[in-house]
Design a protein around this nucleic acid. Structure first.
Lengths: 331, 331
DNA sequence: CTGAAAGCGCTTACAG
DNA sequence: CTGAAAGCGCTTACAG
């Protein structure tokens, strides 16, 4: 038994007694063929075991149904919920997601953008910031749909779906001030967005008459271990803060564990806030006050933008999905 | 200025004064063209801004350079390190990874397998177990390379890269017995692999003369919050265990936090072990005794298998990458 | 609602 | 080391 060639559109057409064009129409849009024809094609597909060749479809047609998602990493990323929601929703519509990792290296980003363009993806979704102006310009010049997520730059490459990190920082400052805290300390991951939140926090805090917050910078990706180290670093400060504003829930969690290990009570002796509202924030003991970003909401907007583009409709360049401070026990 | 058509192979060929075939050869294998020709092509590519169309390449050639990775989820998955390592290594060789989410639903798995076949991927990498016999048979009948990872089934669909979960369970039993623990309690996620580890643990424990371990089953994906609940459930047991063997580091971490919250000392009053050796295991306080699975090793073997297949060489159907118990403070 | 035919942009024996 | 030419399996105006 020699390897039998995989069935093609032609084989199905022959079996169903119609032309290849009609089978193609049925596969892509079942409603446009007559019901009786549809039925014959359906059984011919079943009989032959036909699986469309999407590479051929992409070449002949105008869309690849392939979406590139470029993310810094997936091992420890606040974006995972968003990426997961996007992949699920895109899959429901027959799209596939090519996931590419860029780290925080612009060369890798450039290489992965080229790969995405070579694959003729229908859209490139960026989660993480493209800071290099040349790369931004190159993408802008290209006809492909580019969606920046999780941020809201003043001048998006194409369309941005996210929220203002600065506003999130401001809102946290307002919240903590309202709770009566006096001496905040910031633990800031070295990423553009974290820094923007920190800026928003400090500006608002100072404007409201508070003292200049102290701060510690940490590397990305942020993780649990940094929380522990960040707590120990507090002893270097002239005065102990009454609340530590952490750049991620992982850092907050680690900091709480370390504080408790030396017998300090959270939030009575030291309050803590996180960012991202990961599941663990609600499960930690004490539960962690955090900022929620609705990944499903972002994913829904991505779908909406893609649909609009496919239909040739205009899309707003900046879509604000907002954020919410979630007050819990830790601050 | 009308939208200029994207440059094709022909355009580069014309510009370089060679045939399209030669440009194609250069793009795919620079060494086969004469140095002088190569140089002319190189500058023609730069001048035109040519980006190859991989959809056309996939159709004309025999490979798509597209690999499908099917995973249950990415929000909370022990596989993330492995998937990240695979994506990085595959990208270095010019491959892209289509990431598809299957949950624990066989219908979704089937749909994503069809999608992968429709895209004519060069390989399907499964991380998570395919339990449905029909699906296994269907994949086996297909000529595509199928790599099962993280497990070592007796009869792989094609090739499996992983380790024996049963052996990992046995090893943990041996380890804990050696440390003098007497009454283990297992927290077992409802997944085939976790259950296999639990089986291995119990068999070994009983064989060594220990009493039947108690056990609690929890849903997947496992997470921090389950650790807290699992700790509370300990009070329902007739006798308090001296060590809790958790199905993941997240569960272990949550259990430790909850134990400490009620003033219990870990490991003095209650020892705890995890699984997966996530970064947090080494960072937690106390550090968590866990089982390490080397994701990079799995990724390297995936690359090796893919290379061998591309070269038409034979590959062992079962590749054991092993595991290591990492002894730390928690047990 | 359906068919005939051109074309999408590559790769790859084959021949030199 | 290089070129001419066939072919990969679809989609989509165009015409009916």
């Amino acid at each position: 038994m020699s390897a039998p060639r995989a069935p093609r559109l032609d084989d199905v057409a022959l079996q169903a007694g119609v032309s290849a064009a009609t089978v193609s129409r049925f596969v892509n849009n079942p409603d446009v063929v007559a019901p009786a024809t549809a039925e014959r094609i359906r059984s011919a597909i079943a009989a032959t075991g036909y699986v469309p060749n999407m590479a051929a479809g992409a070449l002949a047609g105008s869309r690849s149904r392939l979406i590139a998602a470029l993310v810094p990493d997936i091992a420890q990323s606040l974006f995972n919920d968003t990426v997961e929601a996007m992949i699920e929703k895109l899959a429901e519509e027959g799209n596939s997601v090519v996931l590419a990792l860029t780290g925080s290296d612009n060369n890798r980003l450039d290489a992965e953008i080229n790969m995405a363009l070579a694959r003729r993806v229908d859209a490139i979704i960026l989660t993480g910031i493209v800071s290099d102006p040349e790369t931004r310009e190159r993408l802008r010049a290209h006809p492909v749909t580019v969606i920046e997520t999780w941020g809201l730059p003043d001048d998006p490459i194409d369309v941005a779906i996210g929220f203002s990190h600065r506003a999130a920082g401001e809102e946290m400052a307002r919240f903590l001030r309202g709770r009566g805290y006096r001496r905040p300390h910031l633990v800031v991951p070295r990423s553009t967005r974290s820094e923007r939140r920190a800026t928003g926090f400090v500006e608002r805090w100072l404007r409201d008459g508070g003292p200049e917050p102290t701060r510690l910078e940490v590397n990305v990706p942020s993780h649990f271990g940094q929380g522990r180290l960040s707590f120990r670093a507090l002893s270097d400060l002239e005065e102990m803060p009454d609340v530590v504003v952490c750049g991620s829930d992982w850092i907050a969690q680690g900091l709480i564990v370390e504080a408790q290990a030396v017998g300090m009570r959270v939030p009575d002796q030291l309050a803590v806030t996180g960012f991202g509202n990961l599941r663990l924030a609600g499960d930690m003991r004490p539960t962690i006050t955090s900022v929620d970003v609705d990944g499903s909401h972002i994913a829904r907007e991505v779908i909406r933008v893609l649909r609009a583009r496919a239909a040739g409709e205009a899309v707003e360049p900046r879509i604000d999905v907002g954020f919410r401070v979630i007050a819990r026990e830790s601050a």
